[in-house]
Design a binder for these strands. Structure first.
Length: 141
DNA sequence: GCCAACGTTGGC
DNA sequence: GCCAACGTTGGC
């Protein structure tokens, strides 16, 4: 089972919105690098939800309810013949007991090479196995 | 195919 | 509000 981190701007769609809906389609990912990661998401994978903007913290846990599929709202193929835009369905699992601020991760040398810090504009990224345990512990779920 | 100009994201 | 880091677009 893989683990991902998905970013969202909470004023657009927050973890609370996902929790209220229980399950929601995660759409709107357009960045090619983010889409490469999103296409590898399989049902059952763990997803850490991170809020950008004023909060800048990992705030909740979700699970992939449906593996990556073509975004029905944005049909089209890329140059590799794949659907150009992928989406997944997410199911809310639980909020963090302790949200994990970006500042905490920046201060921790173990996260030095993590994409959240290194590639600040990437919105979908895998979480390396050695970091998932640390993050789970910090979030307290 | 290169690159300058422009647009966007997200941390500060 | 600013700006660094990327992406994208379009003229050549």
């Amino acid at each position: 089972m893989a683990t991902f981190l998905f970013k969202t701007e909470p004023s657009e769609f927050s973890y609370a919105d996902l929790a209220a809906k229980k399950t929601a389609r995660w759409d709107g990912v357009s960045n090619p690098t983010a889409l490469i990661h999103l296409r590898t998401a399989a049902a059952g994978d763990q997803v850490l939800i991170y809020h950008t903007g004023a909060e800048k913290a990992v705030v909740g846990l979700a699970q992939v309810a449906r593996a990556a599929y073509e975004d029905p709202a944005r049909p089209g193929r890329n140059d590799r013949g794949e659907p150009k835009f992928a989406v997944v369905d997410l199911k809310a699992v639980k909020p963090a007991n302790t949200p994990v601020p970006l500042a905490t991760l920046k201060a921790d040398p173990r996260f030095k090479d993590f994409a959240l810090i290194k590639l600040s504009r990437l919105s979908v990224m895998p979480v390396p196995h050695e970091l998932t345990g640390i993050l789970n512990k910090l979030a307290g779920w």
